[in-house]
Protein backbone atom coordinates (compact mmCIF):
# COMPACT_ATOMS: atom_id res chain seq x y z
CA UNK A 1 0.00 0.00 0.00
CA UNK A 2 1.09 3.52 -0.70
CA UNK A 3 1.41 5.82 2.27
CA UNK A 4 0.04 9.38 2.29
CA UNK A 5 3.58 10.73 2.29
CA UNK A 6 4.47 8.77 -0.83
CA UNK A 7 1.35 10.08 -2.57
CA UNK A 8 2.21 13.64 -1.60
CA UNK A 9 5.73 13.18 -2.95
CA UNK A 10 4.43 11.77 -6.22
CA UNK A 11 2.01 14.70 -6.58
CA UNK A 12 4.82 17.18 -5.95
CA UNK A 13 7.06 15.59 -8.58
CA UNK A 14 4.30 15.61 -11.19
CA UNK A 15 3.40 19.20 -10.27
CA UNK A 16 6.98 20.16 -11.03
CA UNK A 17 6.97 18.32 -14.38
CA UNK A 18 3.75 20.08 -15.40
CA UNK A 19 5.09 23.43 -14.20
CA UNK A 20 8.26 22.95 -16.25
CA UNK A 21 6.48 21.83 -19.42
CA UNK A 22 3.94 24.66 -19.17
CA UNK A 23 6.73 27.21 -18.80
CA UNK A 24 8.64 25.85 -21.79
CA UNK A 25 5.52 25.89 -23.95
CA UNK A 26 4.54 29.36 -22.72
CA UNK A 27 8.03 30.65 -23.46
CA UNK A 28 7.84 29.33 -27.03
CA UNK A 29 4.27 30.66 -27.40
CA UNK A 30 5.20 34.21 -26.39
CA UNK A 31 7.64 34.32 -29.29
CA UNK A 32 5.00 33.07 -31.75
CA UNK A 33 2.24 35.33 -30.39
CA UNK A 34 4.49 38.39 -30.39
CA UNK A 35 5.58 37.76 -33.98
CA UNK A 36 1.91 38.00 -35.09
CA UNK A 37 0.95 40.89 -32.77
CA UNK A 38 0.52 44.55 -33.63
CA UNK A 39 1.04 46.30 -30.30
CA UNK A 40 1.52 44.37 -27.09
CA UNK A 41 1.68 46.61 -24.07
CA UNK A 42 0.13 46.08 -20.68
CA UNK A 43 -2.18 43.26 -21.73
CA UNK A 44 -2.34 39.48 -21.88
CA UNK A 45 -2.47 39.39 -25.67
CA UNK A 46 -1.55 41.85 -28.43
CA UNK A 47 -4.19 44.41 -29.48
CA UNK A 48 -4.58 42.83 -32.94
CA UNK A 49 -2.90 40.25 -35.15
CA UNK A 50 -1.01 40.74 -38.39
CA UNK A 51 1.52 38.97 -40.59
CA UNK A 52 3.35 42.10 -41.68
CA UNK A 53 6.31 41.47 -39.32
CA UNK A 54 7.24 38.47 -41.40
CA UNK A 55 7.45 40.61 -44.52
CA UNK A 56 9.50 43.25 -42.72
CA UNK A 57 11.79 40.68 -41.08
CA UNK A 58 12.32 39.04 -44.46
CA UNK A 59 13.43 42.39 -45.91
CA UNK A 60 15.33 43.88 -42.96
CA UNK A 61 17.36 40.81 -42.07
CA UNK A 62 17.74 39.59 -45.68
CA UNK A 63 16.31 36.30 -44.50
CA UNK A 64 16.25 34.89 -48.03
CA UNK A 65 20.04 35.11 -48.22
CA UNK A 66 20.54 34.01 -44.61
CA UNK A 67 18.35 30.94 -45.10
CA UNK A 68 20.15 30.05 -48.30
CA UNK A 69 23.53 30.32 -46.56
CA UNK A 70 22.24 28.34 -43.57
CA UNK A 71 21.04 25.44 -45.69
CA UNK A 72 24.08 25.48 -47.96
CA UNK A 73 26.31 25.21 -44.89
CA UNK A 74 24.11 22.62 -43.19
CA UNK A 75 23.83 20.58 -46.40
CA UNK A 76 27.59 20.53 -46.93
CA UNK A 77 28.23 19.65 -43.27
CA UNK A 78 25.72 16.81 -43.33
CA UNK A 79 26.99 15.35 -46.60
CA UNK A 80 30.65 15.54 -45.63
CA UNK A 81 30.11 14.19 -42.13
CA UNK A 82 28.22 11.19 -43.52
CA UNK A 83 30.94 10.57 -46.14
CA UNK A 84 33.75 10.75 -43.57
CA UNK A 85 31.88 9.38 -40.56
CA UNK A 86 30.04 6.30 -41.86
CA UNK A 87 33.14 4.45 -43.15
CA UNK A 88 34.94 5.21 -39.87
CA UNK A 89 31.98 3.91 -37.89
CA UNK A 90 32.03 0.75 -40.04
CA UNK A 91 35.71 0.16 -39.28
CA UNK A 92 35.14 0.71 -35.55
CA UNK A 93 32.09 -1.57 -35.47
CA UNK A 94 33.68 -4.45 -37.38
CA UNK A 95 37.37 -4.49 -36.52
CA UNK A 96 39.49 -4.72 -33.41
CA UNK A 97 42.85 -3.12 -33.84
CA UNK A 98 45.58 -1.88 -31.53
CA UNK A 99 44.82 1.63 -30.32
CA UNK A 100 41.06 1.34 -30.89
CA UNK A 101 40.13 2.68 -27.41
CA UNK A 102 42.36 5.67 -28.10
CA UNK A 103 40.58 6.33 -31.42
CA UNK A 104 37.21 6.17 -29.64
CA UNK A 105 38.42 8.71 -27.08
CA UNK A 106 39.60 10.88 -29.98
CA UNK A 107 36.05 10.84 -31.36
CA UNK A 108 34.43 11.44 -27.98
CA UNK A 109 36.55 14.48 -27.05
CA UNK A 110 35.02 16.95 -29.54
CA UNK A 111 31.59 15.91 -28.27
CA UNK A 112 32.49 16.36 -24.61
CA UNK A 113 34.54 19.56 -24.78
CA UNK A 114 32.14 22.52 -25.16
CA UNK A 115 32.30 24.26 -28.55
CA UNK A 116 33.27 27.63 -27.10
CA UNK A 117 36.37 26.10 -25.43
CA UNK A 118 37.81 24.54 -28.57
CA UNK A 119 36.13 27.10 -30.85
CA UNK A 120 38.46 29.96 -29.91
CA UNK A 121 41.71 28.13 -30.76
CA UNK A 122 40.01 26.62 -33.83
CA UNK A 123 38.88 30.05 -35.03
CA UNK A 124 42.43 31.34 -34.48
CA UNK A 125 43.83 28.61 -36.73
CA UNK A 126 41.11 29.19 -39.35
CA UNK A 127 41.89 32.93 -39.35
CA UNK A 128 45.57 32.14 -39.81
CA UNK A 129 44.95 29.98 -42.87
CA UNK A 130 42.41 32.47 -44.21
CA UNK A 131 39.36 30.21 -44.02
CA UNK A 132 37.55 32.06 -41.25
CA UNK A 133 34.94 34.50 -42.46
CA UNK A 134 34.16 32.35 -45.48
CA UNK A 135 31.49 29.72 -45.88
CA UNK A 136 34.10 26.95 -45.99
CA UNK A 137 35.46 28.12 -42.65
CA UNK A 138 32.01 27.78 -41.09
CA UNK A 139 31.54 24.36 -42.73
CA UNK A 140 34.90 23.09 -41.48
CA UNK A 141 34.25 24.38 -37.95
CA UNK A 142 30.83 22.74 -37.82
CA UNK A 143 32.28 19.45 -39.06
CA UNK A 144 34.50 19.21 -35.96
CA UNK A 145 31.66 18.05 -33.69
CA UNK A 146 29.41 16.50 -36.38
CA UNK A 147 31.94 14.01 -37.83
CA UNK A 148 32.54 12.37 -34.40
CA UNK A 149 28.81 12.62 -33.70
CA UNK A 150 28.02 10.66 -36.88
CA UNK A 151 30.71 8.07 -36.08
CA UNK A 152 29.49 7.46 -32.53
CA UNK A 153 25.82 7.40 -33.55
CA UNK A 154 26.39 5.00 -36.48
CA UNK A 155 28.42 2.34 -34.61
CA UNK A 156 25.41 0.63 -32.96
CA UNK A 157 23.41 0.76 -36.20
CA UNK A 158 26.22 -1.06 -38.02
CA UNK A 159 26.69 -3.57 -35.21
CA UNK A 160 23.05 -4.60 -35.68
CA UNK A 161 23.71 -5.80 -39.23
CA UNK A 162 24.53 -9.50 -39.37
CA UNK A 163 28.15 -9.90 -40.55
CA UNK A 164 27.02 -13.02 -42.47
CA UNK A 165 25.25 -10.75 -44.97
CA UNK A 166 28.57 -9.06 -45.69
CA UNK A 167 30.43 -12.37 -45.79
CA UNK A 168 27.94 -13.59 -48.41
CA UNK A 169 28.52 -10.49 -50.52
CA UNK A 170 32.28 -10.97 -50.23
CA UNK A 171 32.02 -14.62 -51.26
CA UNK A 172 30.38 -13.43 -54.47
CA UNK A 173 33.31 -11.14 -55.07
CA UNK A 174 32.16 -7.73 -53.82
CA UNK A 175 34.99 -5.42 -52.73
CA UNK A 176 34.61 -2.97 -49.85
CA UNK A 177 33.35 -0.27 -52.22
CA UNK A 178 30.61 -2.39 -53.80
CA UNK A 179 29.77 -3.81 -50.39
CA UNK A 180 29.05 -0.29 -49.18
CA UNK A 181 26.99 0.80 -52.15
CA UNK A 182 24.93 -2.35 -52.68
CA UNK A 183 24.66 -3.95 -49.24
CA UNK A 184 25.53 -1.68 -46.32
CA UNK A 185 24.06 1.65 -47.34
CA UNK A 186 20.62 0.22 -48.21
CA UNK A 187 20.53 -1.64 -44.89
CA UNK A 188 21.76 1.41 -43.00
CA UNK A 189 19.23 3.88 -44.41
CA UNK A 190 17.37 4.39 -41.10
CA UNK A 191 20.62 4.91 -39.20
CA UNK A 192 22.10 7.22 -41.80
CA UNK A 193 18.89 9.25 -41.95
CA UNK A 194 18.82 9.58 -38.15
CA UNK A 195 22.47 10.62 -37.98
CA UNK A 196 22.08 13.01 -40.90
CA UNK A 197 18.96 14.69 -39.59
CA UNK A 198 20.40 15.11 -36.10
CA UNK A 199 23.61 16.50 -37.58
CA UNK A 200 21.46 18.90 -39.59
CA UNK A 201 19.59 20.05 -36.48
CA UNK A 202 22.88 20.48 -34.63
CA UNK A 203 24.39 22.53 -37.43
CA UNK A 204 21.37 24.80 -37.87
CA UNK A 205 21.26 25.45 -34.11
CA UNK A 206 25.04 25.56 -33.55
CA UNK A 207 25.64 29.09 -32.32
CA UNK A 208 29.13 29.13 -30.82
CA UNK A 209 31.24 27.69 -33.65
CA UNK A 210 29.41 29.62 -36.36
CA UNK A 211 29.57 32.83 -34.34
CA UNK A 212 33.33 32.43 -33.89
CA UNK A 213 34.11 31.68 -37.54
CA UNK A 214 31.46 33.42 -39.67
CA UNK A 215 31.93 36.62 -41.61
CA UNK A 216 29.10 38.96 -42.64
CA UNK A 217 28.22 36.85 -45.71
CA UNK A 218 28.52 33.45 -44.02
CA UNK A 219 26.19 33.98 -41.05
CA UNK A 220 23.63 31.32 -40.34
CA UNK A 221 20.14 32.08 -39.07
CA UNK A 222 20.94 31.51 -35.39
CA UNK A 223 23.89 33.95 -35.49
CA UNK A 224 21.77 36.54 -37.32
CA UNK A 225 19.15 36.10 -34.60
CA UNK A 226 21.76 36.66 -31.89
CA UNK A 227 23.05 39.85 -33.51
CA UNK A 228 19.53 41.21 -33.96
CA UNK A 229 18.73 40.66 -30.27
CA UNK A 230 22.12 42.06 -29.31
CA UNK A 231 21.33 45.22 -31.26
CA UNK A 232 17.73 45.27 -30.00
CA UNK A 233 16.10 48.66 -30.08
CA UNK A 234 17.16 49.24 -33.66
CA UNK A 235 14.50 46.85 -34.96
CA UNK A 236 10.99 46.16 -33.77
CA UNK A 237 10.81 43.30 -31.27
CA UNK A 238 8.11 41.67 -33.37
CA UNK A 239 10.37 41.44 -36.42
CA UNK A 240 13.03 39.75 -34.30
CA UNK A 241 10.43 37.29 -33.08
CA UNK A 242 9.24 36.67 -36.65
CA UNK A 243 12.81 35.70 -37.44
CA UNK A 244 12.90 33.53 -34.31
CA UNK A 245 9.76 31.70 -35.48
CA UNK A 246 11.33 31.04 -38.89
CA UNK A 247 14.41 29.74 -37.10
CA UNK A 248 12.27 27.46 -34.90
CA UNK A 249 10.53 26.03 -37.94
CA UNK A 250 13.85 25.45 -39.69
CA UNK A 251 15.10 23.28 -36.81
CA UNK A 252 11.89 21.62 -35.65
CA UNK A 253 10.91 20.27 -39.07
CA UNK A 254 14.07 18.14 -39.12
CA UNK A 255 13.68 17.16 -35.48
CA UNK A 256 10.17 15.84 -36.10
CA UNK A 257 11.41 13.79 -39.05
CA UNK A 258 14.43 12.55 -37.06
CA UNK A 259 12.24 11.45 -34.16
CA UNK A 260 10.65 8.90 -36.46
CA UNK A 261 13.97 7.04 -36.45
CA UNK A 262 15.34 7.63 -32.95
CA UNK A 263 14.01 7.92 -29.45
CA UNK A 264 14.35 11.40 -27.86
CA UNK A 265 16.43 9.86 -25.08
CA UNK A 266 18.97 8.69 -27.63
CA UNK A 267 19.64 12.22 -28.80
CA UNK A 268 21.51 12.91 -25.60
CA UNK A 269 22.14 9.39 -24.29
CA UNK A 270 24.12 7.94 -27.19
CA UNK A 271 27.19 9.89 -26.22
CA UNK A 272 27.00 9.05 -22.56
CA UNK A 273 26.50 5.32 -23.04
CA UNK A 274 29.65 4.95 -25.03
CA UNK A 275 31.51 7.22 -22.61
CA UNK A 276 30.68 5.16 -19.55
Amino acid sequence: MESALERLWRTLVWAFVIFFVVNVLAMISTVVVNSFGTRWLNSWLPAAFTVRWYASAWREFQLGDVLLVTFQIAGAVVLLSALIGVPAAYALARRDFPGKPLVIVLFLLPLLVPPITFGIPLATVLYKVGLAGTMWGVIVANLVPTVPFTVILMIPFIEQIDPKVEAAARVFGAGTGRLFVHVLVPLLVPGILAATLLALVRTVSMFELTFLTAGPSSQTLVVALYYSVFAAGVRAGQSIDAMAVIYMLSTLVWLVVALRFVNPTQIVARVKKSAA
Binding site: V24, M27, T30, S205, L225, V229, I240, L259, P264
Partner: peptide, 21 residues
Protein backbone atom coordinates in the same frame (compact mmCIF):
# COMPACT_ATOMS: atom_id res chain seq x y z
CA UNK B 1 9.67 14.95 -27.08
CA UNK B 2 8.52 18.16 -25.37
CA UNK B 3 11.63 18.14 -23.21
CA UNK B 4 13.94 17.70 -26.18
CA UNK B 5 12.55 20.96 -27.66
CA UNK B 6 14.65 23.42 -25.62
CA UNK B 7 17.81 21.40 -26.35
CA UNK B 8 17.08 21.43 -30.07
CA UNK B 9 16.10 25.07 -30.25
CA UNK B 10 19.32 26.08 -28.55
CA UNK B 11 20.31 28.75 -26.09
CA UNK B 12 19.84 31.73 -28.42
CA UNK B 13 16.16 30.99 -29.00
CA UNK B 14 15.54 30.14 -25.35
CA UNK B 15 17.12 33.45 -24.38
CA UNK B 16 14.92 35.37 -26.84
CA UNK B 17 11.82 33.51 -25.60
CA UNK B 18 12.66 34.19 -21.96
CA UNK B 19 13.25 37.88 -22.67
CA UNK B 20 9.58 38.04 -23.64
CA UNK B 21 8.24 35.59 -21.11
Amino acid sequence: TILVLPITLGTVLVAEGLLNY
